[in-house]
Design a binder for these strands. Structure first.
Lengths: 141, 141
DNA sequence: GTACAACAGTTAGCATAGCTAAGGGTTTGG
DNA sequence: CCAAACCCTTAGCTATGCTAACTGTTGTAC
């Protein structure tokens, strides 16, 4: 593909991703967790326990912001914050079983909403989407 | 595709979309516009002038929240807010040329960042992605 | 045509989420 | 061993989210 074609493809993928997430985001209200907390919790659940700096970097916010988001998660019983034994400057933040459960339930609602849309497609379209998704997963990794 | 396969596909598309937008979002700092304002401006640029209620609904926020986001956009010269001549309860909100220009520039940076990633793919992968993108565009419309 | 309900948006007031600057405790390195 | 670098938190500000209440406009019932 030439440069213009790649640019066009990037533009389409970008727009479609925005619309896709706008759609499924409607389901999040049912979790009872605010968007920033839900997003941080998601990073913890899928990325495993990590330091504050790592979590802040993953969420593209500064350390003080994440410090208070974590404070909220801990207050709600969705995460734990404990000192790192190896380096006592660091904190080790982890999702609790309750946090994991609530996040998974929310994610399940999102995925279900998307699945219902995919159901309407022809089988050939679904397979085209599956092949595209495989490539896209590598691109974003 | 059966239900489990569709569920798996939905899950992959969901994750990939999240990671894709997380990637390109890094470019937004250069716009000098906050995420909520940038997102609202994007709706105005691509959707054309609209009422406060329409804009609030598109952004999934309540009217008072959008009222103040628009206030910020107007203060920064990125949007205008004028009374609807047909129904004076309504306001007609529109992007200014300056707003359109700043948004387009930001979007261009995002798309360019994504394009550079797509460039590394094999041609067959790029074509598979293009076919998948076409389907995805219809799904999210 | 007047009263009144419904509607569109703003204002008020609160909690949360973003930032920078500054401070406290912990490691590291000269 | 002490100063610099590091990691996080605290302080204090602005912006963004909400609900409740208010203002002004439109529609409607009588």
């Amino acid at each position: 593909m030439n440069d213009d074609q790649l640019h066009d493809l990037a533009s389409r993928l970008h727009s479609a991703s925005i619309r896709l997430l706008r759609m499924v985001r409607r389901e999040d209200r049912a979790t009872g967790i605010s968007p920033p907390r839900l997003s941080a919790l998601s990073v913890l659940v899928f990325g495993g326990p990590m330091s504050l700096a790592e979590l802040a970097s993953a969420e593209e916010v500064r350390a003080p912001t994440m410090s208070r988001v974590v404070e909220g998660l801990v207050a709600d019983g969705l995460a734990t914050r404990e000192a790192d034994p190896d380096n006592r400057r660091k904190v080790r933040i982890a999702a609790t079983p309750e946090g994991r459960r609530r996040l998974e339930a929310g994610r399940e609602r999102r995925v279900r909403a998307l699945r219902e849309r995919l159901r309407r497609l022809a089988d050939s379209e679904q397979r085209a989407l599956a092949r595209g998704a495989e490539v896209l997963e590598r691109v974003t990794r």
